[in-house]
Design a protein around this nucleic acid. Sequence first.
DNA 1: TACTTTTGTATCGCGAACGATATAAATAAC
DNA 2: GTTATTTATATCGTTCGCGATACAAAAGTA
Lengths: 151, 151
Amino acid sequence: MKEEFRLDNQLCFRLYTASRLLTQAYNPLLSAHGLTYPQYLVLLVLWENDAQPVNDIAKRLCLETNTVTPLVQRMEKQGIVTRAKGTNDARQIIVSLTDKGQQLQTALTDVPFAVGGAVACKSLTPETVPALFQTLDDMIAQLKKNLKRDT
Amino acid sequence: MKEEFRLDNQLCFRLYTASRLLTQAYNPLLSAHGLTYPQYLVLLVLWENDAQPVNDIAKRLCLETNTVTPLVQRMEKQGIVTRAKGTNDARQIIVSLTDKGQQLQTALTDVPFAVGGAVACKSLTPETVPALFQTLDDMIAQLKKNLKRDT
DNA sequence: TACTTTTGTATCGCGAACGATATAAATAAC
DNA sequence: GTTATTTATATCGTTCGCGATACAAAAGTA
């Protein structure tokens, strides 16, 4: 059994697990409002900049448009966003928040704090978090570059 | 726009993205052998300890059995593992590696190195990785505790 | 022993993720 | 101006991931 194959030596498995468990911490808070975690991410994007084409949302979330399209379609059905043909570019679909989508920001005010409480641990302090963010951002940038390369 | 809602301040989004992109780095290497990343994780578990019940595999990977069951069923169809009723406990299904499953370990020898190359960045050094692992493990332990609490 | 509860798997349904493919609109090339 | 290429979405098929549920085996209880 080679050392590189030990599960406890895998960075990816840790990220995968941490990501899933942290998402699970969001779930009860979001599902109370009929939302999923990826839908919440779309809301975060639109709260920052409303009325964006599908492609921009996808790029911001590092997702494919064929993931975002049905995601946004479900959100449209729930009356959270609207989808309208772009005026400049008729190929684009501009996704915009409805009043309901705007108001969710107020309804979800305490979500970041509640989740923060669920992850709070001695390894996550105001001193360590910036370094962690830096490392993850660095990794993400590197992976984006390398994944794009062999396309 | 509250600061806590900014996408760039989200730990979860970083973990989610890093996890997905790193998984994508595994994909071409694994799909060349007909494997997916979660299937690869099952192999890692079985290479460490062959012949485990579904429940133990699920616990090791922090997954639900209703995720692992169909995963393992697909691996059985591919001739990578066998599934057999437990002798002590007739409810258990013991998952064991076939010869093909064993041999994949050799075939995939270079996967950890190739993936290591794809994430290699200045933030990931022999000095920083242990701290990163520690932080992620700490977070995961904390989340497990808190998620279990409200069950 | 008979009954209840727990445990281990499995099935079902839905929402991601994503590769592959399709289609129409915009752009580039000629 | 016509043709070729790229770009923005969308659809389809497969595999996760998980909540809800079902069911049989095991363990606990009366």
